[in-house]
């Protein structure tokens, strides 16, 4: 998991994230980078810090000095991450059914809700039910924001995972409905097609450079002129 931490305000960070379409979580107003630096006597940035699955700092250095060997060592003993990882919820709630907490941590939200129901009436179960319901609501909001800015890859995969997991739970109805809305929305479908075309053009950019990929990028602009993908393509061509 990659996290970028800046101590700057969102008003500075978010336009940058948007302009460069950063593909990982970015924090604004974070003090953790400074605290990590203080721990190891590092003042400058950029600087990378590698944590193992227990949250221990196992390596730090300039981003250019990170190697596969460092990553391999840090990842030893890490959980396997599948499509349900985005659904995962971890927390400590007194009296919550332990197996429900385990299921929630594994992203098995329907299973967690089922186990909570078996202990309905207990304070801990009630608190966990509230937390998981809020978590599902948060996920839906994040997915909608991502779809709204034309970021389809991870968000639609997350929506699919959520819909599959909760298909027999009351919360699942609204999620399935949202899936149907997206499938029937011509504007969104056009955006998705444009995003896929841009992804192919970006592969060319990565493998052969912008000059060789220019025609592909121009094709995205021509075929899907008013999409987020076209805007990004224009930015890359310099139009």
């Amino acid at each position: 998991m990659v996290l970028a931490l800046s101590n700057e305000p969102a008003s500075k960070v978010e336009p940058y994230v948007e302009q460069y379409n950063l593909p990982f979580p970015v924090a604004s107003g974070s003090t953790a980078g400074g605290k990590l630096g203080a721990m190891v006597g590092q003042k400058g940035i950029p600087h990378s810090y590698l944590l193992d699955p227990e949250g221990r700092l196992v390596w730090h250095g300039h981003p250019n000095s990170l190697t596969k060997k460092h990553l391999k060592l840090a990842m030893a003993g890490a959980d396997r991450v599948g499509p349900k990882a985005v659904l995962s919820w971890r927390g400590e709630i007194d009296g919550a059914p332990p197996k429900a907490l385990e299921a929630a941590a594994d992203g098995e939200l329907a299973q967690a809700f089922k186990l909570i129901e078996k202990e309905a009436g207990s304070e801990g179960a009630g608190a966990l039910d509230e937390s998981l319901s809020a978590h599902v609501a948060d996920l839906r909001k994040q997915i909608d924001l991502a779809v709204g800015r034309g970021d389809f890859g991870q968000s639609l995969a997350a929506l699919e995972s959520l819909a599959k997991d909760l298909k027999r739970h009351p919360l699942g109805e609204a999620i399935l409905e949202r899936q149907r809305e997206i499938e029937e929305d011509e504007t969104i479908q056009n955006e998705i097609e444009a995003a896929e075309a841009l992804d192919k053009a970006l592969e060319l950019v990565a493998n052969r450079g912008i000059k060789k990929a220019k025609k592909s990028l121009q094709s995205v602009v021509k075929r899907f002129p008013s999409t987020h993908a076209a805007k990004r393509a224009r930015g890359l061509i310099g139009e």
Binding site: P23, G29, L36, Q142, A146
Partner: peptide, 16 residues
């Protein structure tokens, strides 16, 4: 142990 990961806000993240 790393210090806690804090932020006033997050962009581009999905999940908890």
């Amino acid at each position: 142990m790393s210090p806690e990961i804090d932020a006033k806000s997050w962009s581009r993240h999905l999940g908890q």
